[in-house]
Protein backbone atom coordinates (compact mmCIF):
# COMPACT_ATOMS: atom_id res chain seq x y z
CA UNK A 1 0.00 0.00 0.00
CA UNK A 2 1.48 3.31 -1.04
CA UNK A 3 -0.20 5.31 1.69
CA UNK A 4 -2.61 3.86 4.25
CA UNK A 5 -4.31 7.22 4.76
CA UNK A 6 -4.85 7.92 1.06
CA UNK A 7 -8.51 7.18 0.43
CA UNK A 8 -8.39 8.03 -3.26
CA UNK A 9 -6.74 4.73 -4.17
CA UNK A 10 -8.93 1.99 -5.61
CA UNK A 11 -8.09 -1.44 -4.24
CA UNK A 12 -8.37 -4.41 -6.58
CA UNK A 13 -7.93 -8.13 -6.34
CA UNK A 14 -4.54 -9.05 -7.68
CA UNK A 15 -4.26 -11.01 -10.90
CA UNK A 16 -4.80 -14.67 -10.20
CA UNK A 17 -7.06 -13.99 -7.21
CA UNK A 18 -10.73 -14.99 -7.25
CA UNK A 19 -13.46 -14.16 -4.74
CA UNK A 20 -16.49 -16.37 -5.08
CA UNK A 21 -19.29 -18.09 -3.22
CA UNK A 22 -18.83 -21.80 -2.61
CA UNK A 23 -22.15 -23.61 -2.52
CA UNK A 24 -20.63 -26.78 -1.02
CA UNK A 25 -19.45 -24.93 2.10
CA UNK A 26 -22.12 -22.24 1.94
CA UNK A 27 -19.37 -19.65 2.36
CA UNK A 28 -17.46 -16.98 0.44
CA UNK A 29 -13.90 -17.97 -0.41
CA UNK A 30 -10.91 -15.99 -1.63
CA UNK A 31 -8.69 -18.08 -3.87
CA UNK A 32 -5.17 -17.27 -5.01
CA UNK A 33 -1.95 -18.99 -6.02
CA UNK A 34 -1.50 -21.71 -3.36
CA UNK A 35 -3.69 -19.57 -1.10
CA UNK A 36 -7.18 -19.97 0.23
CA UNK A 37 -8.85 -17.66 2.69
CA UNK A 38 -12.29 -17.98 4.21
CA UNK A 39 -13.08 -14.36 5.02
CA UNK A 40 -15.20 -13.56 8.06
CA UNK A 41 -18.45 -11.62 7.63
CA UNK A 42 -16.79 -8.22 7.87
CA UNK A 43 -14.17 -9.14 5.31
CA UNK A 44 -16.84 -10.47 2.95
CA UNK A 45 -18.65 -7.12 3.07
CA UNK A 46 -15.41 -5.29 2.27
CA UNK A 47 -14.32 -7.67 -0.48
CA UNK A 48 -17.68 -7.42 -2.23
CA UNK A 49 -16.89 -3.75 -2.75
CA UNK A 50 -13.34 -4.28 -4.00
CA UNK A 51 -13.55 -3.99 -7.78
CA UNK A 52 -10.58 -1.88 -8.85
CA UNK A 53 -12.83 1.11 -9.55
CA UNK A 54 -14.35 2.02 -6.19
CA UNK A 55 -11.96 4.06 -4.07
CA UNK A 56 -11.02 3.19 -0.51
CA UNK A 57 -12.95 6.28 0.61
CA UNK A 58 -16.08 5.15 -1.24
CA UNK A 59 -15.83 1.69 0.29
CA UNK A 60 -15.60 3.19 3.77
CA UNK A 61 -18.54 5.54 3.09
CA UNK A 62 -20.68 2.66 1.86
CA UNK A 63 -19.96 0.47 4.89
CA UNK A 64 -20.32 3.32 7.39
CA UNK A 65 -23.74 4.17 5.93
CA UNK A 66 -24.99 0.60 5.82
CA UNK A 67 -23.77 -0.46 9.25
CA UNK A 68 -24.43 2.84 11.02
CA UNK A 69 -20.97 2.80 12.60
CA UNK A 70 -18.61 5.74 13.19
CA UNK A 71 -16.70 6.43 9.99
CA UNK A 72 -13.32 6.55 11.77
CA UNK A 73 -13.81 3.08 13.20
CA UNK A 74 -14.84 1.64 9.83
CA UNK A 75 -11.93 3.40 8.12
CA UNK A 76 -9.41 1.91 10.52
CA UNK A 77 -10.85 -1.60 10.20
CA UNK A 78 -11.12 -1.56 6.42
CA UNK A 79 -7.66 -0.11 5.95
CA UNK A 80 -6.12 -2.69 8.28
CA UNK A 81 -7.94 -5.53 6.56
CA UNK A 82 -6.91 -4.47 3.06
CA UNK A 83 -3.36 -3.84 4.19
CA UNK A 84 -3.27 -7.37 5.61
CA UNK A 85 -4.64 -8.81 2.35
CA UNK A 86 -2.08 -6.82 0.36
CA UNK A 87 0.67 -8.35 2.48
CA UNK A 88 -0.72 -11.78 1.65
CA UNK A 89 -0.65 -11.00 -2.04
CA UNK A 90 -4.43 -10.96 -2.51
CA UNK A 91 -5.11 -7.24 -2.96
CA UNK A 92 -3.29 -4.45 -4.74
CA UNK A 93 -3.69 -0.68 -4.74
Amino acid sequence: MSDAADESVAPALRRGVKFRFDTVRDAWVLLGPERLFVPDETAVEVLRLVDGARTLGAIIDDLAARFGAPRDTIAADVTALLHDLAGKGAVTF
Binding site: R25, F37, L81
Partner: peptide
Amino acid sequence: MPDDLPAR
Protein backbone atom coordinates in the same frame (compact mmCIF):
# COMPACT_ATOMS: atom_id res chain seq x y z
CA MET B 1 -8.91 -12.79 8.81
CA PRO B 2 -8.60 -16.50 9.55
CA ASP B 3 -6.57 -18.62 7.12
CA ASP B 4 -8.43 -21.72 8.18
CA LEU B 5 -11.88 -22.98 7.49
CA PRO B 6 -14.49 -22.20 10.12
CA ALA B 7 -14.99 -24.71 12.91
CA ARG B 8 -16.44 -28.05 11.95
